[in-house]
Each structure stands twice: as C-alpha cells, then as structure tokens.
Simulated assay, not measured.
Amino acid sequence: MAEDKRIENVKAAIGAHPDFPKPGILFRDIFPVLRNPPVFKQLLDIMTEYLQSQCPGVEIVVGLESRGFLFGPILAQNLNIGFVPIRKKGKLPGLTEKVTYKLEYGEDCFEVQRDSIKPEQKVVIVDDLLATGGTMKAAIELMETVKADVLGGLVVIELVDLKGRDKSNKPIKSLIEY
C-alpha cells in the first residue's frame, strides 16, 4: 500500500497543459514533481526499488536525452553503478555509435560513446515518458549495437493510447499510465 500512496502523490504532482505544444495535445509535465522534494524523493525511491527487485545485476543506467538525465544519474548513484547518457547527434565527444530513427515528420539520431558500455553489460534504459515508442526503440537498438544486455526500460509516464510499448522488444515498466 505504501507504494500506491507514493505513486498517487507523484501522479497528483504531475502537471497537465492542454493544447501544448500544439492544439489537441495534453502535455504531461514532470517538472512540478522535481520542484517538490518529498514527492521527487518518493519517485526516486520507487524507481530505485523497482530496479533493485526487478532488474537484478543491472550494471549501467542509461538515460535518454534529456529528461532521462534527471533520473538516471541519481538512480545509478542509489544503486552504486554507472550512468551512461544517450544524446542527440553531435553532442558527445570521442568515438560514438549511432542509430537513426523516425519521427512523426522526418528522422533524428541518437549516439552513445563507444567505450561507455562493455559487451554483455546489463543495462536499463530510463526516461520520463513513453509515448509513440520511437525513442525507446532507438535506444534499445543502440544498446544492442554496442552489445549491451538490455534488461528493459523504466519510464515514469506512459501514454497508453499511443501504443509505444508495442515497438519494444524488451520489457518496459511504466509507473503512471494515462
């Protein structure tokens, strides 16, 4: 029951902005959670407990640009493991691996530093939102390119009507569904 109350607290703190960024979209805003230290701590505790119990042996938390960077390093620190960012093209120094993925209009590219993950390391991909699933799918593909063992994904919010999890070949855990 304690977890249910913590999830309720997080959900109550999430903002909603109608018609943003364009008419017909209801934008779910995670930033009010971050402005509320007790609720933010509850969210991080839930995420940490999930990784400890459901992802045994995880060695790296991978965060997606940009809001995955808000949770990933803290989760990695809580678990005493490494954090690796996945960034948009051209944002990382050194040798990188890339994957291109489709957007609603056009395409984009994710990169990871080649030496940031060793083959067979167990990773979990963290982000704030699962919507259409394109970025999560691309992140999984990128991790498979560097031969990581992808245990799955962990997101705070899932927009279930968009069926983003259907694009994933790995388990995805969402804490809050709309």
Score class of each variant (00 low, 15 high):
Met1Phe: 09
Glu3Met: 04
Val10Cys: 00
Ala12Ile: 03
Ala12Pro: 07
Gly15Val: 07
Gly15Trp: 07
Asp19Gln: 10
Pro23Leu: 10
Leu26Met: 12
Phe27Tyr: 15
Arg28Gly: 00
Arg28Ile: 04
Asn36Cys: 13
Pro37Asn: 03
Lys41Met: 11
Gln42Cys: 00
Leu43Tyr: 00
Asp45Gln: 13
Gln54Asp: 13
Cys55Asn: 10
Gly57Met: 04
Val58Ser: 01
Gly63Val: 10
Gly63His: 08
Arg67Thr: 08
Arg67Tyr: 08
Gly68Thr: 12
Phe69Gly: 08
Leu70Asp: 08
Leu70Gln: 09
Gly72Val: 14
Pro73Arg: 03
Gln77Gly: 12
Leu79Ser: 07
Asn80Arg: 07
Pro85Arg: 04
Lys89Leu: 07
Leu92Pro: 04
Thr96Trp: 13
Lys98Met: 02
Tyr101Asp: 01
Lys102Pro: 00
Glu107Pro: 01
Asp108Ile: 00
Glu111Trp: 03
Gln113Ile: 10
Arg114Trp: 03
Ser116Asn: 11
Glu120Asp: 14
Gln121Asn: 06
Lys122His: 08
Ile125Trp: 06
Ile125Lys: 05
Thr132Pro: 03
Met136Asp: 00
Ala139Asp: 05
Glu141Cys: 00
Glu141Pro: 01
Val146Ile: 14
Lys147Ala: 04
Ala148Phe: 09
Gly153Glu: 01
Ile157Pro: 00
Ile157Phe: 07
Glu158His: 02
Leu159Pro: 01
Ser168Lys: 00
Ser168Pro: 02
Ser174Thr: 05
Ser174His: 04
Leu175Lys: 03
Glu177Arg: 11
Glu177Tyr: 02
